[in-house]
């Protein structure tokens, strides 16, 4: 009984590990563009949080304005770089 159980475990493991898989997931390296898109989402989240906290009365008007300006500048820089990379990626196909 023990021998059969051991044999089943060994054969089952071997078959599972080495059974040929047709659709193997490709390992893909994240690009700068993908990173920037993630960063843009984080910045938009930060802006949404800031707006909500301001509306809830947590920050005075002056603090809110300066915080918002800083975040918007950062977001604008990120969006600009995204646009540049997207246009670069698009250009060769039409060039």
């Amino acid at each position: 009984m023990t021998t059969i159980a051991c044999g089943l475990l060994l054969i089952g493991a071997f078959l599972y590990v080495f059974w040929p898989e047709k659709n193997v997931e490709a390992q893909h390296q994240k690009t700068r563009l993908e990173f920037l898109r993630e960063r843009r989402e984080v910045l938009f989240d930060n802006l949404r949080d800031l707006n909500f906290e301001y509306r809830s009365g947590k920050y005075p008007e002056e603090d809110y304005a300066s915080q918002r300006a800083m975040l918007e500048n950062e977001a604008a820089e990120t969006v600009a770089e995204i646009d540049l990379l997207e246009s670069d990626a698009f250009a060769p196909q039409h060039g």
């Binding site: 599972y16 590990v17 193997v24 997931e25």
Partner: peptide, 23 residues
């Protein structure tokens, strides 16, 4: 053997090790 296929066998070996340890 392509590295993707080798990595897939490695991943499956990891999964199978769970069943062996559970036994």
């Amino acid at each position: 053997i392509s590295p993707e296929k080798l990595a897939e066998t490695a991943r499956r070996a990891g999964i199978a090790s769970f069943f062996a340890t559970a036994c």
